[in-house]
Amino acid sequence: MTTIRPQRDQMIKRAVMQRPEAVIETSIQLWEKLARELISIIGEGGFHSLYKRSLHLTGATFPWMAPDSTLPQNSSDFVDLKKCLAGQDAANAGEASAALLIIFIDILALLIGELLTSSILRSAWGDDALDTVVKELP
């Protein structure tokens, strides 16, 4: 199972950077899809708690990602995150977005396990995004 995380991290980075010219829009779409999936399971409060913690941890590497200004107002409102990412060049925005997603998903996996996390990601982002990761699960 130790190989799952690096492969999942690479999958997230590829998903964020699949269209370098549209890294911000791609990032927001990934967040919106993940939020819809998770809120149906853990509710908005649970999602916001995980998201806020992830922003806080990501802020250690990317201090310009202020947790208070990028919290979504509702389940699919990532306008503030989009504004925050838009203030950076595409490469930096992509790195920060991938880091935020990786941290969020790592926390989720610690809480609910790899199998359920992979299932949620598959539901949110589709089969192709996770094929490599799931092949490593026992």
Rank of each mutant, 00 (worst) to 15 (best):
D77T: 02
L50A: 10
S27M: 03
A99K: 09
S49T: 13
F104M: 09
I102K: 07
G87W: 03
A66Y: 08
L100K: 04
S49P: 01
P20T: 00
D80I: 01
S54E: 13
E44P: 01
A98L: 02
M65R: 09
Q73T: 05
L71W: 00
L34I: 09
N74F: 12
P72Q: 06
V79K: 15
H48I: 06
F104N: 07
L85G: 05
T58I: 03
Q73G: 03
I103D: 07
T70Y: 07
H56T: 14
K82V: 04
F78K: 05
S40L: 14
S76P: 02
E21D: 10
E95F: 02
Q18G: 00
D80G: 03
C84D: 12
D80L: 09
H56P: 01
K82L: 10
A35V: 08
S69N: 12
S97A: 14
G46S: 07
A35R: 06
L30G: 05
A60V: 06
I39F: 09
K82N: 12
D106R: 03
D77G: 01
L71S: 02
K83E: 10
L57A: 11
A91F: 14
I41C: 10
E44M: 10
W64D: 07
E32L: 12
L108F: 01
L30D: 05
L38R: 13
